[in-house]
Amino acid sequence: MTPSSRQRPGATSSRATRILGALTLAGLAVLAFLGLYVSPPDGLQGETVRLIYVHPASATMAYLGFGVCAVASIAFLWPRTRSYRWDRLAGASAEVGVAFCVVTIVSGSIWGRYSWGVWWTWDPRLTLTALLLAVFVGYLALRRTGGDPLGRAKRSAITALCCFVVVPVDHEATSWWVGLHQNDTLFRIGKSPLIHGWQLATMLLSFVVFTLLFAWMVLHRLAIESMESRLEDEGYVWAIAERRSESGPAPAGATASSASSGPLVAGPLPPVATSQRMVQEAPGSLLAPRPLPRERGEAGL
């Protein structure tokens, strides 16, 4: 392997994600400026109203993450569209959704402390959001159980659909039950928004910026999922190939593919090859864009 053929180890970015990242960063800077300096404080809530530029957008991104997870899970379970790409998208979006859900609960709790006098109350919306977080944490734990990839993906997809049921109930909680949490501020059927001017503009911008951030995070998480999947599939084979190359000059044209098709251990090998060394010693080969063996046969899954 020549140095010029190496890719940066652990790189998950592409030109598109770098542009998206730059846009997101610029958007966050503008949002912070508008939210902290330009937007006026509220007559009743004072400075705490600025949390409205984080909390609703975070909650929406959490719903979006869980929604993408559910749709991707359906696509995986549907035999005609079954592909591990859907499984990876479901996992990536759920993980980002969980992160935004945590931000939602933390920002809501801070707001509640100053508005209601308590960090937490058993309001239907709060309770259901905590429940939503708990069920998707369980979903992520199920994804990490290892074992046969197909079985794990099927179990995860069915669980995702069970978990997603909580999302519409959580969203409608303020309509179905009487609680402390206020109703929607922006999207009110047949009514104008409850905020105006710079507050309205900043809040709308927060949805745009958080959507960019969501997309950027999901794309990077998706790339990591792909690497992990490739490491599971090919890591051992590539580690063997590296050891064989260390033991002596490799025959002309020898590649990891030939190593996998021939005898696995032909020469003297060190007794231990940890997964950490696999990553360190063969980063380019693991990260190189090449079709996964099982993806070539996805139609037969």
Partner: peptide, 25 residues
């Protein structure tokens, strides 16, 4: 449903409560 999901896994004893308790809330 959650029992069979965790049945064949090495972490079934800890995974089942994590999956079932929130769902049963």
């Amino acid at each position: 449903v959650y029992g069979v999901m965790s049945a064949g896994l090495r972490v079934r004893e800890t995974l089942l409560p994590l999956l079932l308790l929130p769902v049963a809330a």
